[in-house]
Amino acid sequence: MAYRNAIPTPPGAEAKPAPQFDSLRQQYEADTLGMWIFLASEILFFGGLFMAYVIYRAAYPEAFEAASGRLDLLLGGINTAILLTSSLTMTLADDAVLPRNRKALIGWLAVTALLGTVFLVIKGVEYSVEFAAHLAPIFGRPFDFPEPHTEQARLFFSFYFALTGLHALHLFIGIVVVLIMLALAIRGVPRLEAKVTIAGLYWHLVDLIWVFVFPLLYLAAHHG
């Protein structure tokens, strides 16, 4: 997982870098740097939405507070905890890959994918409740919210669905990537460390984005 001065070559594995690289170390550094640049790009992708949200929330504080109060804090909090835990299990999988502890690697990857799936299921439950409560301003569905905040509550829920929807899409991609890693690990493919580390970086970023989404959306209201 970490940047290491020398990547130990496991005995017996014919470790050869891709043809454009001189050494495995060069390849590993290029891979991690490439992933970090991609993540910086992702930060700005979500950043555009975050910025728009911050500006509107500053303009309509009371409406956003009222609308945020309609979200399910309990499910949101549980989901946050699940995602933070999945980051831990991803890290533990990463810890297991270099000591070639295949069983732990397979186990932690499976747990990570499972936690991600649970998150999506809970998110789906939240969505269905919100659809039933007429809080989803999409596809021209009815939108019910008491005056005087009807219009800006609509704005809030637009953000809610855009942010959580895009995040769910990223998480879904993350689950697919983790499942691919799992398949590789089960098939016993050697030298997975760079791949698992990079998959982990992506997974943690999806977690990191949620860490901001949660307080922005769910904690905008006073619950006291």
């Binding site: 970090w36 910086a40 975050f50 943690h204 860490v211």
Partner: peptide, 29 residues
Amino acid sequence: IVTFFMSMRSAAPVPRIAAAAGFFWLLLM
């Protein structure tokens, strides 16, 4: 998360700069 789970603590300088650039540019915007 960045420091411990994403191993920024032990990362090489250039990935550090890349990560910092993402956050810095967001703040600029």
